[in-house]
């Protein structure tokens, strides 16, 4: 099968790799360029564990054709913390125990980052909507929603706590 070259930016670094026809972006990231932060959950677009950002928008890497990212900017959790520190979203997730097994966390963080980059002061409903394509088996979502609101500095952060 023919291999195709693809060049793209991953978390600000230029990457070049060869992809197979029909290969998805999750495989390219994990196997092709060694970024293991996006997770494989379903391969069907339904769990959100593989969520990354492409040119600032959230995308499901398992159902994204790898070659379509040529020349584009891909962001994963691997690039979220900077200069040794954690991103405010990661800090808030830690403070609120928003990760238990942690499998959904990379996808949740990227879905949340896509929201906050566009809308720095979201309402609770907007946060719920932003993570509505991401499944968490452990937390019951409240801690995640509160973390996103807290990272955004929103006053709604405490509203849903029982």
């Amino acid at each position: 099968m023919a291999k195709k070259p693809v060049q793209f930016h991953l978390n600000g670094e230029e990457k070049a790799a060869f992809v197979d026809d029909g290969q998805n972006l999750l495989e390219l990231l994990r196997r092709g360029v060694g970024d293991l932060t996006p997770k494989y959950g379903c391969g069907q677009g339904t769990c959100g564990a593989c969520t990354v950002m492409i040119d600032g928008k959230p995308h499901l890497s398992c159902i994204t054709l790898a070659e379509t990212v040529g020349g584009r900017k891909v962001e994963t959790v691997g690039g979220l913390g900077h200069a040794g520190g954690l991103h405010p979203l990661q800090e808030a997730f830690m403070r609120n125990f928003a990760a238990q097994c942690g499998y959904c966390t990379p996808g949740m963080l990227m879905a949340a980052k896509a929201l906050l980059d566009r809308n720095p002061r979201p309402t609770r409903e907007e946060v719920v909507e932003a993570i509505s394509g991401n499944i968490c088996r452990c937390t019951g979502y409240e801690a995640i929603i509160n973390s996103v609101l807290e990272a955004a500095g929103g006053q709604g952060a405490m509203a849903g706590r029982g």
């Binding site: 029909g22 391969g43 159902i63 054709l65 379509t68």
Partner: peptide, 24 residues
């Protein structure tokens, strides 16, 4: 024909044999 691929890529991942070419 490839639109955004949200259904086609699912089919590719599942090993769907009903098509063998994707046109973008």
């Amino acid at each position: 024909f490839f639109g955004g691929g949200t259904l086609l890529m699912r089919a590719v991942n599942e090993g769907d044999q009903s098509f063998d070419r994707i046109i973008r």
